[in-house]
C-alpha cells in the first residue's frame, strides 16, 4: 500500500530531472542562437531571463518541498494492519493549527508581493509608452493574413510618403541600436513574436502599438506570429536581419530602394496564394 507513494515520488523526480536538465541542452532551454546558446541577444531578454530563473528556482524549491511533504505523508501515514487485522496505529485527531495557517499564509504572501513588485520595472521598461526610445521609428510593421509587411520611412525619414521602402517578412535593423517599430494589423489579430529577443506584442486591427527591442549580435533571427490568425498562422514567419553597422544597413536599404524603383512596385510584391500551402 504505502509503496504507491513511490509513484508520486517518481513523477516528481522525473519532473525535477527534466527541468534540471533543460538548461544544459540548447534545444530544451530558452531559445538562443545556435552558435552561442548561453547568450541572450537583447537587453530585455536578459532581464526577462533573470526573472524567469528566479521564479524557476523559487517555484522549484516550493515544488520540491511540497512534493516531499506529500510523498512523506503518503509513505509514513499509510494505513497498516497488525497481525489481528486491526489498524496498527490510530489516526491522530486534530482539526488544524491556527499558527500554521497564519505562517503559511504570510510567508507566501510576502514572497508573492515581492515577486510582483520585483517585476514591475522590467515590465515598465518593455511596455510602457513612456519608456519608448526617443528615436525615429525604424519601420511600420503591419500583420496581415499571412505575412508581415514592413514599411521603412525611406530617405525622407517619414512613414507614409512616396519614398517608403516596402519589404515582406523581412525586418532589418542595426546591432546595438534600439529599434522602434510601430505595430499594426490590417485584418485580424496577429502577434509579433521574437523568440530570441523575448519580445511579444499582439498586433490589433485599429491600433498602432509601439514596440522596441535591441540585439547585440549581428545575424539572422526569426519572427513568428504567436496569435491564431487563420489557416496560414503556422507559416506566418519572417526574418529579422541584424546588421553589424549602420552603414551596412543603409547600403542594404539603398540597394532595396533602387530595386523597388526599377520594378515600379509601390506595393508589396508576391501575395501568397492558396496553392502555396504545404
Amino acid at each position: 500500500m504505502r509503496y504507491w507513494s513511490l509513484i508520486f515520488a517518481l513523477a516528481a523526480a522525473f519532473s525535477v530531472g527534466a527541468f534540471a536538465y533543460a538548461p544544459f541542452s540548447p534545444d530544451w532551454w530558452l531559445p538562443n542562437t545556435v552558435a552561442e546558446p548561453g547568450h541572450v541577444v537583447s537587453k530585455a531578454g536578459r532581464e526577462i531571463d533573470a526573472l524567469f530563473i528566479i521564479i524557476l528556482w523559487l517555484t522549484g524549491g516550493v515544488f520540491v518541498a511540497t512534493q516531499a511533504a506529500l510523498v512523506w505523508a503518503q509513505f509514513r501515514y499509510a494505513d497498516r494492519l497488525d497481525a489481528e487485522g486491526k489498524p496498527a496505529r490510530p489516526a491522530r485527531y486534530f482539526h488544524g493549527s491556527q499558527r500554521l495557517e497564519v505562517i503559511w499564509t504570510i510567508i507566501p504572501a510576502g514572497i508573492l508581493v515581492f515577486l510582483a513588485l520585483y517585476q514591475m520595472s522590467t515590465w515598465a521598461d518593455v511596455k510602457f509608452r513612456s519608456a519608448a526610445p526617443r528615436t525615429p521609428v525604424l519601420a511600420e510593421l503591419t500583420g496581415r493574413q499571412f505575412q508581415w509587411m514592413v514599411k521603412y520611412p525611406g530617405p525622407d525619414g517619414k512613414v507614409g510618403t512616396a519614398d517608403d521602402l516596402f519589404t515582406v517578412n523581412d525586418l532589418h535593423l542595426v546591432k546595438d541600436e534600439t529599434a522602434l517599430i510601430h505595430l499594426k494589423s490590417s485584418d485580424v489579430i496577429h502577434s509579433f513574436f521574437l523568440p530570441q529577443m523575448r519580445i511579444k506584442q499582439d498586433a490589433v486591427p485599429g491600433m498602432t502599438i509601439p514596440v522596441w527591442f535591441d540585439c547585440d549580435r549581428a545575424g539572422r533571427y526569426e519572427l513568428a506570429c504567436a496569435e491564431l490568425c487563420g489557416w496560414g498562422h503556422y507559416k506566418m514567419r519572417g526574418d529579422v536581419v541584424v546588421h553589424e553597422t549602420r552603414a551596412e544597413f543603409e547600403a542594404w536599404q539603398a540597394a532595396k530602394l533602387a530595386e523597388q524603383g526599377r520594378s515600379q512596385v509601390g506595393e508589396p510584391e508576391g501575395e501568397t496564394s492558396e496553392g502555396d500551402r504545404q
Binding site: L30, A44, G45, E47, I48, L51, F52, I55, L56, L58, T59, L112, L115, A116, Q119, T122, W123, V126, K127, P195, R198, I199, K200, A226
Partner: peptide, 13 residues
C-alpha cells in the same frame, strides 16, 4: 506564477 509575472509572460504567452 510564471504567467502572472508580466515580463516573463512576454516570452511564454
Amino acid at each position: 506564477i510564471f504567467m502572472a509575472a508580466t515580463p516573463v509572460d512576454i516570452h511564454i504567452h
